[in-house]
Computed example of a mutant assay.
Amino acid sequence: MIRHLVLFKLNDGVSRDEPRVVAAAKAFEELGGIVPEAEFWECAWNITDRPIAYDFAINSAVADKDALVRYLEHPAHQAAAGQWREFATWVIADYEF
């Protein structure tokens, strides 16, 4: 199994309640039920207020490296990630467990 973690940081001046941010979060919330390679899926807004904290997180798992590639290339994933590119940056970690 491969764990796929993503942490999003909203750009300066962007708030969680903007319609485009709400729509992008909803797109990721729905993604786990759309992409068949996602064997585990959860995402949520950060609940703490610390200077080093990111704003939104995805914690997911896929079977193997091939499944990760299919997930990343899936049109629904591409569309959801494309929304975030407009107003956020992110970091990822993929590891086997």
Rank of each mutant, 00 (worst) to 15 (best):
residue 82 G to T: 06
residue 88 A to T: 06
residue 90 W to T: 07
residue 39 E to C: 09
residue 58 I to G: 05
residue 4 H to L: 05
residue 34 I to E: 00
residue 35 V to R: 01
residue 18 E to C: 14
residue 71 Y to P: 00
residue 1 M to S: 12
residue 71 Y to V: 00
residue 2 I to N: 11
residue 8 F to E: 07
residue 90 W to M: 03
residue 56 F to S: 06
residue 79 A to K: 09
residue 24 A to S: 09
residue 37 E to F: 00
residue 96 E to T: 14
residue 68 L to S: 09
residue 96 E to C: 12
residue 7 L to H: 14
residue 9 K to H: 15
residue 23 A to F: 11
residue 9 K to L: 15
residue 19 P to S: 08
residue 57 A to K: 06
residue 74 H to Y: 07
residue 49 D to Y: 07
residue 96 E to S: 11
residue 94 D to A: 08
residue 22 V to F: 14
residue 80 A to Y: 03
residue 82 G to M: 05
residue 86 E to H: 10
residue 6 V to L: 02
residue 1 M to Y: 12
residue 63 A to E: 10
residue 81 A to N: 03
residue 86 E to K: 13
residue 94 D to S: 06
residue 38 A to R: 00
residue 32 G to Y: 06
residue 66 D to P: 10
residue 46 N to L: 04
residue 86 E to F: 07
residue 30 E to N: 06
residue 49 D to A: 07
residue 57 A to P: 09
residue 72 L to F: 00
residue 41 W to I: 00
residue 32 G to W: 03
residue 95 Y to P: 12
residue 67 A to I: 01
residue 45 W to P: 04
residue 51 P to A: 15
residue 25 A to L: 13
residue 83 Q to K: 12
residue 42 E to F: 05
residue 64 D to W: 01
residue 57 A to N: 05
residue 24 A to K: 08
residue 80 A to F: 01
residue 19 P to W: 15
residue 30 E to H: 04
residue 12 D to V: 11
residue 8 F to K: 07
residue 21 V to A: 08
residue 65 K to F: 11
residue 52 I to H: 10
residue 25 A to S: 10
residue 89 T to K: 15
residue 19 P to M: 15
residue 38 A to L: 04
residue 12 D to Q: 13
residue 46 N to Q: 06
residue 89 T to H: 13
residue 2 I to A: 13
residue 10 L to K: 11
residue 9 K to N: 15
residue 92 I to H: 14
residue 29 E to T: 12
residue 26 K to D: 12
residue 82 G to A: 04
residue 40 F to P: 02
residue 16 R to L: 11
residue 84 W to E: 04
residue 41 W to D: 03
residue 24 A to H: 09
residue 49 D to H: 13
residue 10 L to T: 09
residue 73 E to Q: 09
residue 67 A to T: 00
residue 24 A to T: 11
residue 12 D to L: 14
residue 38 A to D: 05
residue 1 M to D: 15
residue 1 M to R: 15
residue 47 I to P: 13
residue 47 I to C: 09
residue 76 A to N: 01
residue 89 T to P: 07
residue 61 A to V: 08
residue 60 S to A: 02
residue 47 I to R: 15
residue 8 F to M: 09
residue 53 A to M: 09
residue 7 L to S: 15
residue 74 H to F: 01
residue 81 A to L: 03
residue 20 R to V: 15
residue 25 A to G: 11
residue 3 R to W: 14
residue 52 I to V: 11
residue 27 A to T: 02
residue 95 Y to W: 08
residue 9 K to T: 12
residue 97 F to L: 11
